[in-house]
Design a protein around this nucleic acid. Structure first.
Lengths: 321, 321
DNA sequence: CTGTTAGCGCCTTCAT
DNA sequence: ATGAAGGCGCTAACAG
């Protein structure tokens, strides 16, 4: 019994011959170790929980791949739980995961509220935020500088001579993808001495359709903007199609730029100019950080901000006077 | 101790007053039940494992949503494991999931080989295949009729007067998305008395880029086809962009049709005509089937085939002579 | 309705 | 290098 345990756990204190015999018996009997019993006895499950806000969002899917590759590398299993963008469900899966005795948790995307912090606080295992942060930075996290990314996006518009720049924003309640990107927009305008006009901002929900809607509104303006900054690629693509469906052209009639660089960004015509966030790396770095935390290694910086990069493609052009 | 167990498990045999007291204590102590210990004692984990071949494929993501909604409805947790389209990894996660004592397993997408069947055979819990089937139909499954879907797609091309119809296929090793769809193509041609020509078929890998490549090849043909049938929407979209980048038009110069109906199909211009598979429903029905199996209810039909439907959009037109 | 008693299958000392 | 024994936290009979 104990010897079998040793063999299964690669404990060196087993005579090679015995080890071989055990393996044979395992094979013959079709023995499969019971991870539940093992977890109970050893108080470790070698699995980490990952809560993903929306499985059908390709950004999170890519982040998840990064998480997973690193997890596998360190021999952790991961159990992914979808939370459907619902706060209530997020809290629920966090608790479920904790009950399942995961050795660590990564919380992806999503707004981190006081209730989340509360749930995290009761956990006895390390937690890292991934592609999101909490406002007061008390929890280890890996993300990009959303405001900076937005700032850069709007600035490339400005450098192309645009001054009438509209924004399709996400909800301002969302500190990262929403509010921070909006702040970046405002600061870029301010930096260029361009007046901020409220009717050049529409709030969308990050998805394609809301990009279409917002653009319809801008097309209806008496004084149309010459460029559109969308908080996400999906909304930007919606805007592009709305423009095209109206018989106008990108970038001739409107330049459009956004933030994310999802796969689809290079699968539209014209290909989308956008500020890329390193999705895979965000996941990978977050998981790496978590492994350190789980091993109680001390980490110097637990609030990591990964660099973004502007990808020039074909949806932005010099403004034509 | 036992009483606490009763209240936590909603056993009715507890005086309401005692129940209340227990809840208070739970609250006060911040007690969180240990699902691992519970699983060991009760021999049930109320979780089902889901292996997803490729988390960044939106089809599987949508199927997963169907699985999840139904799982939640029946109070099962699900643990999603990505397998990266690698057979070896698929087998590994199946075993991991089984070691974790899941109460059931859904295996999504992917080719079901003899090795898979072998792994399934050692399981003592029910398994259902989802968006795939095994060749001899010995395992419960939920899928569409891939051959029929492809047949319908090619037929709508034929009804629009096309006779020079090329196909961008998946690998013929894949029985469902590959071989079956290819068979549907051939049968449709046959049914219309059109000769099958080998150089009108290219093998892709289901992804956008391979659609582009295949289309480049067709554009280079001395006698070009007038219509393209792609085995997946992604490849179809690649083909469309390849056509457009060559200065030609869809559907004026080429009609294109495919199978899947991913979200992106209506997010391209022209919007893609395609044969829709009910992704969410495939997941939902599979999970429902699994719940029945787990409860040992008897099911009449464990090989369910869901209907597909042709969605006419703008990428197919009458052939111009 | 509530408390007592065995395990669930494994890991981990402690002897041998 | 191996075996014996206790216990991980909970559920499931069984008494009372």
């Amino acid at each position: 019994m104990a010897t079998v345990s040793r063999v299964v756990n690669n404990n060196p204190n087993v005579k090679p011959q015995t080890r071989k015999k055990v393996y044979e018996a395992i094979e013959r009997l079709g023995y499969r170790p019971n991870a539940v019993a093992r977890g109970l006895a050893s108080k470790k499950t070698t699995t980490v929980g990952v809560v993903i806000p929306d499985i059908s969002n390709s950004i999170f899917a890519e982040v998840a791949r990064g998480i997973e590759d690193i997890a596998n590398m360190y021999h952790y299993n991961i159990i992914l739980c979808n939370a459907d963008k619902k706060k209530e469900k997020e809290i629920r899966v966090i608790n479920t995961l904790l009950e399942k005795q995961v050795d660590g948790l990564v919380f992806m995307g999503g707004v981190v509220t006081e209730d989340h912090i509360q749930a995290f606080r009761t956990a006895s295992v390390p937690i890292v935020l991934c592609a999101t942060t909490d406002e007061n930075g008390s929890i280890p996290s890996v993300d990009i500088d959303h405001e900076g990314a937005a700032f850069d996006a709007v600035n490339t518009l400005i450098r192309h001579g645009h001054r009438d720049i509209a924004m399709i924003s996400g909800t301002l309640q969302d500190p990262a993808n929403g509010f921070a990107r909006f702040q970046g927009y405002k600061k870029a305008l301010e930096g260029a001495g361009i007046e901020y006009k409220e009717d050049l901002v529409r709030i969308g929900n990050y998805r394609y359709e809301s990009g279409v809607e917002a653009m319809k509104y801008f097309l209806g303006l008496k004084k149309r903007p010459t460029a559109i900054f969308a908080a996400t690629d999906e909304m930007a693509i919606g805007a592009i199609h709305c423009i095209q469906d109206a018989g106008l052209k990108v970038p001739d009639d409107f330049s459009v730029i956004s933030v994310d660089n999802i796969r689809m960004a290079s699968m539209v015509r014209p290909q989308l100019t956008t500020v890329a966030q390193p999705m895979y790396d965000i996941g990978a770095v977050a998981m790496r950080l978590l492994t350190k935390l789980m091993k109680k290694e001390n980490v110097e910086n637990s609030q990591v901000v990964l660099p973004h990069e502007t990808i020039l493609r074909l949806s932005v052009s010099q403004v034509n006077e």
